Simulated assay, not measured.
Amino acid sequence: MNTKHSHIILYDGVCKLCHASFNFIIHRDSKAIFRFQALQDFKNFELLESQIQKPIPDSILYIQEGKIFTKSTAALKICKNLDGLWPVFYVFIMLPRPIRDYIYDLIAKYRYSWFGKYNTCMIPDENLIDRFI
């Protein structure tokens, strides 16, 4: 991936759960390693299609040093880099991926009906603008 950032989170910019997760990560990333972009604004889907299994997830992708992670693996790898006790959750990486992804997919499937949806993607305020790519 042609970028200077090594920890990029692509998220569903209209999902209220994803927006809450974004805020959660921002507040637990004191080193400011993560950079963000809404999937709706991402321009290089051809790169993603060449590196991950289709269909491209519409909820979260985590790109760490050029390697793309999806679904539960993305969430756990993000937790591994957060402040506090959140890295402890990385132990769940030992569960078989189909089990982890089943739970992830269930939440992702119903996220709009359970948590709601925005009409447009969030526009970052001036305090967060440098965290977006």
Rank of each mutant, 00 (worst) to 15 (best):
D125M: 00
I9G: 04
Q37I: 14
I107C: 09
L47R: 04
I33V: 15
Y102M: 10
L128C: 03
H27V: 07
V14D: 06
L85P: 04
D125R: 05
S113N: 12
V91P: 03
A108T: 07
F36V: 12
A20E: 13
Y110I: 08
I123Y: 03
M122Q: 14
I103S: 08
F89L: 14
N44M: 05
R111T: 04
Y110Q: 05
L17D: 11
H19Q: 15
K4T: 11
L17R: 09
R28M: 07
Y104T: 02
K77N: 04
R131V: 03
A20Q: 15
I107G: 12
C15G: 02
Q53G: 00
H27C: 10
K77C: 00
Y110D: 10
N23H: 15
D101Y: 02
K109S: 13
L61A: 08
F89V: 00
C15E: 06
T120C: 08
D83Y: 12
L10F: 05
L47Y: 13
L95D: 02
E126S: 04
T120D: 13
H19S: 15
I8Y: 05
N119D: 15
N2Q: 14
S59I: 11
L128W: 02
I63N: 10
E126Q: 12
A75V: 13
I68K: 09
K117N: 10
I33P: 10
I56Q: 00
R131Y: 04
Y90P: 05
D41Q: 04
L17I: 11
I133P: 12
A32D: 14
N44P: 04
R35P: 11
N23L: 12
S72E: 05
K4F: 04
D125I: 07
F132V: 03
F115W: 11
H7F: 11
Y62L: 06
M94A: 15
D130C: 07
P124Y: 07
N127K: 07
S72F: 03
P124V: 02
L39A: 02
G13S: 03
R97I: 02
I129Y: 01
K54D: 01
V14A: 03
S21G: 15
N119S: 14
L85E: 00
E126V: 09
L10E: 03
K80I: 00
V88I: 13
D41R: 05
P57W: 00
K43C: 00
I33E: 09
H7P: 08
T120E: 08
Y118L: 12
A108Y: 05
G13D: 04
I9H: 08
A20V: 09
K4M: 09
L61N: 10
L95N: 06
H19D: 15
F34P: 05
K31R: 14
S21V: 12
I60Q: 15
R111C: 04
K4C: 00
S6W: 01
A32V: 11
L82Y: 10
P98H: 01
Y11E: 07
R97H: 00
M1T: 11
K16M: 10
W86V: 07
I60E: 13
N81S: 14
A74W: 06
L128S: 04
I52C: 00
I56Y: 01
W86C: 00
C18K: 08
F42G: 03
I33H: 07
I52R: 01
D29C: 10
N44E: 14
L128T: 06
